[in-house]
């Protein structure tokens, strides 16, 4: 099957790739662009480990075809920190031990960053429902929710 040429933007950089029409954005990021920060947990859109934003909208990259990325803007976990400086969410996740194994963490960080951009003052219930599509099997979510709530409070104070 012939491959298709795609031009897109990933974390602000323009990139080009050739992909099979059956390949997902997740496949492209990991296998063609070498960006393995985005994880595959299920391939069916049920676990959220592959969360990215596409033109600012939170999506499961396993449910978007690579060819659909043409002309779009993709943001992944690799783009959250600025140089050496971690995003407040990243810092708080480490400080609060909001990760144990860390496989769901990239997706959860992408998802929560998207949440706080939409809603800087979410309630605990809002955070829990926003993250209901991001499975974590290690933590029971307690420390994740606390990290998100406290980061939101810090960011509100700082702004």
């Amino acid at each position: 099957m012939s491959k298709i040429h795609v031009t897109t933007t990933v974390n602000g950089d323009e990139v080009e790739f050739l992909c099979d029409p059956r390949e997902t954005v997740l496949d492209v990021l990991r296998d063609r662009l070498g960006m393995t920060g985005t994880k595959e947990g299920c391939g069916t859109g049920d676990c959220g480990a592959c969360s990215i934003t596409l033109d600012g909208r939170l999506v499961c990259s396993c449910l978007v075809l690579g060819v659909e990325a043409e002309g779009r803007e993709i943001a992944t976990v690799e783009g959250i920190a600025t140089g050496e400086d971690l995003h407040p969410l990243q810092q708080k996740f480490i400080e609060y031990a909001a990760l144990q194994c860390g496989i769901c963490t990239p997706g959860i960080l992408v998802a929560t960053k998207a949440l706080l951009e939409k809603n800087p003052d979410p309630t605990e219930t809002e955070v829990r429902y926003w993250l209901a599509g991001n499975l974590c099997r290690c933590t029971g979510y307690d420390k994740i929710i606390r990290a998100v709530m406290d980061t939101a409070a810090d960011m509100r104070e700082a702004s």
């Binding site: 960006m35 920060g37 985005t38 920190a81 031990a97 990239p106």
Partner: peptide, 10 residues
């Protein structure tokens, strides 16, 4: 944790 930065940056 020593591997914290690795795990929050991908």
């Amino acid at each position: 944790r020593p591997d914290g930065v690795d795990k929050v940056t991908g």
